[in-house]
Write a protein that binds this DNA or RNA. Structure first.
Length: 308
RNA sequence: GGCGUCGUAGCUCAGUUGGUAGAGCAGAGGACUGAAAAUCCUUGUGUCACUGGUUCAAUUCCAGUCGAUGCCA
């Protein structure tokens, strides 16, 4: 074989587009394994609401980074990058192709391009900045960041507390401006990468989101959420499907209203995902029913002549 | 059948003491480096139900028609 490099095939797409089934089918045909890039399926307690693959599906091909964490664990993109790269190294020893699938764009980027080396968040510092925000509002964050890092301040979304807080946190932790630690260069990888977005007409996607939401309720989403009520404040549960059911359990909204809200919020999530993918011109957009097209592209990228 | 109220953006509604109209939600577009299913930004022209009348001018006033709804029969 001429092509000595291995291939990481990224299969992503908006939520409910059918990437799980499709990737399992591909991985089975290529007799290989799947690494998940889904920031909610990491948590073992999130099953129904996170649309985690079923036990039957997981049995078809080996999966990694699904259910390896508890919702109480702290995890982040950098750790994910490390985990995903370590898995790639191991799996490429015995496979020419490995699939990475999931809908978390930032996590996919971390695996494919890498992210800057920054210290792990210090919870004490973060909490103190959060308190500053709660007590004095966004202006206090703006003033602070402007003093600590005027360069980043000139580019940052000044109305987004999350951006401001993280930047301040890094400045305080490292004693350096956040901007000086961001190189934003793309790390090279010891494997080739093929990136595919599974596309669907918007009406069809919305229909699938609606149907999947109804199915989640039938499958017992409410009981799953009830069992997690003691964790309701952890970040992992600030998630579509869970927060709406918490509101229903609080009797703040009716069940039909909660279900409607889940559908709406899922549609919006899908929209944000699509915005993210559109920005990255490396993605090939392929219709969900064009499995043969995908296989043909994979063959080409593996250095084989397309036989289809 | 009689009397009243209502009919304005996909939905809920506001408003114009007559000069063709605006909020919330939904929708659309965008941003994004350790919270990312998170967090945040931008974006509102529609036969003002229909047909006539009055008027320089009607979505606004008047009449009729249709539809919704309430009360009385």
């Amino acid at each position: 074989m001429k092509n000595s490099k291995k291939l990481l095939c990224v299969i992503t797409g908006p939520t409910a587009c059918g990437k799980t089934d499709l990737t399992i089918q591909l991985a089975k045909e290529y007799n290989t394994h799947i690494i998940s890039a889904d920031s909610r399926q990491f948590y073992k307690q999130l099953i129904i609401g996170a649309a985690t693959p079923s036990a039957n599906q997981l049995a078809i091909v080996p999966h990694y980074l699904i259910g390896q964490l508890s919702v109480e664990d702290s995890y982040n993109v950098y750790k994910f990058e490390q985990d995903a790269l370590a898995l790639c190294e191991t799996l490429f020893q015995s496979h020419n192709i490995v699939f990475l699938t999931g809908g978390s764009g930032l996590y996919i980027d971390a695996a494919c391009k890498g992210i800057d080396l920054l210290p792990d968040p210090d919870l004490e510092i973060r909490n103190s900045i959060n308190t500053l925000f709660e007590e004095q509002g966004i202006e206090a964050l703006q003033t602070k960041l402007q003093a600590l890092d005027p360069i980043y301040y000139s580019n940052v979304d000044k109305l987004n507390p999350a951006r401001l807080i993280r930047a301040i946190e890094v400045c305080l932790q490292t004693g350096k401006p956040y901007s000086s630690l961001r190189n934003q260069h793309q790390n090279s990888r010891p494997f080739n990468i093929l990136k595919i977005v599974i596309d669907r007409p918007k009406e069809i996607l919305h229909q699938r989101i609606s149907q999947r939401t109804e199915q989640m309720i039938k499958d017992g989403l409410i009981d799953e959420v009830k069992s997690l009520i003691k964790f309701r404040n952890v970040n992992a549960l600030n998630t579509v499907g869970y927060k709406e059911i918490f509101q229903y359990l609080d009797e703040a909204i009716s069940l039909p209203q909660a279900i409607e809200n889940i559908k709406t919020n899922t549609r919006r999530y899908a929209k944000r995902q699509l915005t993210w993918f559109r920005r990255d011109k490396d993605f090939l957009w392929i219709n969900a029913d064009e499995l043969n097209t995908i296989k043909s592209i994979i063959e080409t990228n593996l250095g084989n002549s397309p036989s289809l």
